[in-house]
C-alpha cells in the first residue's frame, strides 16, 4: 500500500468516526479490509483507495469505516465497573421518583457484550431494585455489529470471554453451534446506530454511561468533545465508566474520578468545586 492510500483510507476513517489510525495499524487495514477487497474484486488496498477517491459517497466507504472501527469485546470486561454498577444501582433505583425509568447507555456497544452484561446484572439484582424499570441503550457506529448485537447470538469462543459459566447456563441456549441469549435479556436492550461525534441530545438523559475503550482511538480535541457530549447527557448523580487506559485529565473538568473506584467518574459538584 502506498503512503497516499494509507493516508486516504485513515483520513476517511478519521473524518467519519473521529478514530485515528496510526501507521502501526497498517496491518489492521490489510486484515480487516481483505474480505471487502475479495468481494469487490479489487486487487489491492491501493485499488480500493482509488475507487473511493473517485466516488467517496459509495456505501462502500461506510463499510470500510465500519470494518476498521469495530473492536474485540467480552462480557463483564474489566470486572470492576460492573462490581461498582451492582453496588450503586439499588441506591439509584431508590432515589428516583415512582415511575421513572433508570437509563443505562452502552456507547460504542460493539457486538453487545457490555449491554447484555448490564442486563444480566439488572436481572440478578431483581427485587433489590424494587420493581424499578431499567432501560438499556446500546449504540454503535457500525450497523453491522449492531445487527449482531441485536440478534444476541454468540460464538462458543465469545461466551467464554468474561462470562461466568453459571450465567452461561442461566441465560444462554445452544443454537446450531452457537449460543443465543435469552429473550428476556434481549428485550431489555434497545439498539441504535449513533456516531459519538454527533450531538447525543436526541438520546436523552442517562443515569449510567459506559464509554470504554473508545476514547483511546480519538485525538485530544475529539476526546474532549465526546466527554463534553456525554457529560451533558448524564444525570447529576449518575456515573460514567471509562476504559482502564483512559483518563479525563487535561481533557475535561466536568467529570471527576469517583473516589476509590477505578474507571468510574461522576460530574464535578458545585460543592467540590468550591473546596
Amino acid at each position: 500500500m502506498t503512503p497516499e492510500s494509507f493516508q486516504f483510507l485513515t483520513g476517511l476513517v478519521k473524518a467519519r468516526s473521529g478514530i485515528v489510525l496510526t501507521t502501526e495499524k497498517a496491518y489492521m487495514l490489510e486484515t480487516r479490509l481483505a474480505p471487502i477487497l475479495k468481494r469487490e474484486r479489487l486487487a489491492s488496498l491501493d485499488a480500493l483507495a482509488g475507487r473511493l477517491r473517485s466516488a467517496p459517497s459509495l456505501p462502500l466507504a461506510t463499510e470500510v469505516v465500519e470494518a476498521l472501527t469495530t473492536n474485540e469485546s467480552s462480557f463483564f470486561r474489566d470486572g470492576k465497573p460492573f462490581e461498582h454498577l451492582r453496588k450503586i444501582l439499588p441506591a439509584l433505583a431508590a432515589s428516583r421518583p415512582a415511575g421513572q425509568t433508570l437509563r443505562v447507555w452502552s456507547a460504542a456497544s460493539s457486538t453487545g457484550q457490555e449491554a447484555y452484561s448490564v442486563a444480566m446484572i439488572v436481572n440478578e439484582l431483581g427485587p433489590v431494585l424494587g420493581g424499578r424499570r431499567v432501560e438499556i441503550l446500546g449504540t454503535d457506529l457500525s450497523r453491522d455489529v449492531l445487527a449482531r448485537a441485536q440478534e444476541g447470538l454468540f460464538s462458543q469462543f465469545e461466551v467464554q470471554r468474561g462470562l461466568p459459566v453459571q450465567l452461561l447456563v442461566k441465560y444462554f441456549k445452544p443454537d446450531s453451534g452457537r449460543w443465543r441469549i435469552a429473550d428476556g435479556l434481549r428485550t431489555m436492550v434497545r439498539w441504535q446506530c449513533y456516531n459519538l461525534l454527533e450531538n447525543p441530545a436526541i438520546l436523552g438523559r442517562f443515569d449510567i454511561i459506559f464509554c470504554r475503550n473508545v476514547l483511546i482511538y480519538f485525538d485530544a480535541a475529539t476526546k474532549t468533545q465526546v466527554l463534553s457530549n456525554i457529560s451533558n447527557q448524564l444525570q447529576p448523580d449518575g456515573y460514567v465508566y471509562l476504559g482502564g487506559a483512559e483518563t479525563v485529565l487535561g481533557l475535561t473538568t466536568r467529570l471527576v474520578p469517583s473516589s476509590g473506584e477505578r474507571g468510574a467518574y461522576e460530574l464535578m459538584r458545585s460543592a467540590a468545586k468550591a473546596s
Partner: peptide, 23 residues
C-alpha cells in the same frame, strides 16, 4: 467450565471467574 478448543484468553478469563486470578 471450559469448552474446547480454548486459548490463552479463555483460560485466563476462566481462572479469573474461578477466583484463581484477579481481574
Amino acid at each position: 467450565y471450559i469448552m474446547k478448543p480454548f486459548d490463552a484468553g479463555i483460560l485466563h478469563d476462566k481462572f479469573v471467574q474461578a477466583g484463581l486470578l484477579s481481574d
